[in-house]
Write a protein that binds this DNA or RNA. Structure first.
Lengths: 146, 146
DNA sequence: CACCTCCGTTCGAAAACAGAACTCATGTTC
DNA sequence: GAACATGAGTTCTGTTTTCGAACGGAGGTG
């Protein structure tokens, strides 16, 4: 198996990972959710070489996770914004952030706080069951082929 | 910035991604949550070279995500099991699976179904607010430094 | 002893990457 | 109007990582 074959495996993890399962891609997405939209801002925040950023952005646009949009003419300049498909990755990023907060925070606590506008509170993401609404733990889940 | 510096950035995404943000690591974790525990089973399921599997398993053990445990003596054989820290990654994997189910499923539907033992229903993971219990969307979240 | 099973390690080839230079279309300063 | 600045890339070169395939080894089995 090679990276480019991953997407054709009949497994949702493999298919997702083929798109977003790369360190820099995940870092780019983190920044997208923090409101970063321009090439040079990605570069400044990530501190990696421009060719990687160009490559990852192009890939995410091809996959429909980001869209490239002109924000001015003369000269034409573009920015990268999350599509709905990209916004749907929010739970993935939040789950990753939360795991990091719990297991790798230093004395100063988690680097970022997240406030739920609807209720006004700082919160942590909780995974719940779409059927009963209760929170779900790993051991309570039974997996079977469809 | 290089991959090995990622873990020392003050950002929970970076720190998490330094541990799990690698295609094969995520695939290994997927299999862990499906009950795979032995080296050769990982190899058979993933179809990638043994050195990658050895490397990823070792890394995950060092990070405390898996533990390596003898399941027999004479000869000693070990298996890899999720620790509590590893089990805490369940929401990450579920979020990835769900995104893949929604955006990359074929006509036959999602490859796997997940049943919540507590309520007996097949379910999808929903991210909710720890404070108010309501489901949370990307646009309802405000991020600020702590 | 020959062979098997499970679990890795080694090594050369292939790919990813950093960093700098280059492009290009415009705008701004001297 | 020459020189410099800006934003968004692309291209090049040489180093670093990653990977597949083959090998190793510890113990059991016939």
């Amino acid at each position: 198996m090679k990276w480019n074959e991953l997407g054709s495996v009949r497994c949702s993890v493999a298919r997702s990972v083929a798109v977003i399962g790369d360190r820099w891609t995940l870092m780019v997405l983190r920044d997208c959710f923090l409101g970063v939209r321009r090439f040079d801002d990605f570069e400044a925040r990530l501190g990696i070489s421009r060719s990687i950023i160009a490559d990852r952005l192009k890939h995410l646009v091809e996959e429909g996770v980001l869209r490239r949009e002109a924000y001015q003419d003369r000269p034409v300049r573009h920015e990268y914004r999350l599509t709905d498909k990209g916004l749907a990755l929010h739970p993935v990023i939040m789950a990753i952030v939360h795991w990091g907060d719990v297991h790798y925070a230093d004395e100063a606590g988690p680097p970022l706080l997240h406030r739920h506008r609807a209720c006004g509170c700082d919160f942590t993401p909780v995974m719940t069951c779409s059927a009963c609404g209760e929170s779900v733990t790993a051991r309570e889940v039974e997996v079977r082929a469809s």
